[in-house]
């Protein structure tokens, strides 16, 4: 009884502090720009340069991809590495825990609840959705520098397709079960592919990730072709890494979960 009382006091104090901080933030926040204004600091200097020069510099019509994969390619490389590290960490933390076999996992899913999405029809419908998501993921990947798309989104979509196939119980043939080791190797291959894309221009006398000096394409003047190739290679690396890490985290948790708890 006393414990719940002190909890209530703690909660009240916390709410009071948060309201105070919020009120002061609102008071100070009047310097924040009006939503939708054209001349705010965030919309002025760098962003104007990117918008007006992206197509000419990088031949990428998607300006977000141009910023992400070309202007800030080095930043995205380390972002990918951070993701890869998080996957390795998750595997390392759980590596001492015993795996529960795949068949038993499926059976326990079936024992506990007959259907993941509440009915047989919903389960079947979600299984039909899987190939469509796969096709859409590939589309998003190869449209990275032309229209809406990009590596991170494509990786999430492909991993989502695998996830749906993995968690819905089925007695028919399913996509081959990927272990967390193979998924982690896939992610590492993606990150390595990114680094190799960065090193290739150096063989031709350029800087790291300088797509103008990539050693293929029709000569040095072909900026559009070289930049499209470079961005696409980077997107493939990022896609592999994101897909691998999502599947790794899913598998490493799912393989070791005891559904009897």
């Amino acid at each position: 009884m006393k414990k719940s009382n002190s909890n209530k006091k703690l909660a009240a104090g916390l709410i009071a502090i948060i309201i105070l901080v919020g009120a002061s933030a609102l008071k100070i926040g009047s310097f924040l720009p009006v939503i939708g204004a054209q001349d705010t600091p965030a919309n002025s200097y760098l962003s104007e340069y990117y918008i007006s020069h992206a197509v000419e510099d990088t031949a990428s019509h998607n300006i977000v991809t141009a910023v992400l994969a070309d202007y800030r390619g080095f930043d995205t490389l380390f972002e990918t590495c951070v993701l890869f590290l998080s996957g390795i960490t998750a595997v390392m933390i759980l590596s001492t825990k015993k795996k529960i076999s795949h068949d038993k996992t499926i059976r326990t899913i079936n024992d506990n609840s007959e259907h993941i999405f509440s009915s047989n029809i919903m389960d079947a419908a979600f299984r039909i959705v899987v190939p469509i998501i796969l096709i859409y993921g590939i589309y998003v990947l190869i449209h990275g520098e032309i229209s809406l798309g990009g590596g991170f989104q494509a990786g999430a979509l492909l991993a989502c397709a695998y996830l749906l196939d993995r968690i819905i119980p089925s007695f028919q043939m399913r996509v081959k079960h990927i272990t967390d080791e193979i998924a982690l190797i896939t992610a590492g291959t993606g990150a390595l592919f990114y680094v190799i894309t960065g090193i290739l221009p150096m063989l031709n006398g350029g800087n790291f990730l300088e797509f103008n000096k990539l050693p293929f394409g029709s000569g040095a003047g072909d900026i559009a072709g070289l930049h499209s190739t470079g961005i696409l290679m980077i997107e493939i690396g990022v896609t592999l890494c994101v897909m691998g890490i999502i599947i790794t985290i899913l598998e490493v948790v799912l393989e070791r979960t005891d559904f009897d708890d």
Binding site: L46, S47, Y50, A54, L68, E79, G150, F152, I249
Partner: peptide
């Protein structure tokens, strides 16, 4: 403005990583 979109795309991915490590812990 494309810059916040490019920055937050990577932030979303990092939040995925932190969630994964948190689940493992």
């Amino acid at each position: 403005n494309p810059v916040p979109h490019a920055l937050m795309l990577t932030a979303i991915v990092v939040s995925l990583g932190t969630t994964g490590v948190g689940l493992a812990l």
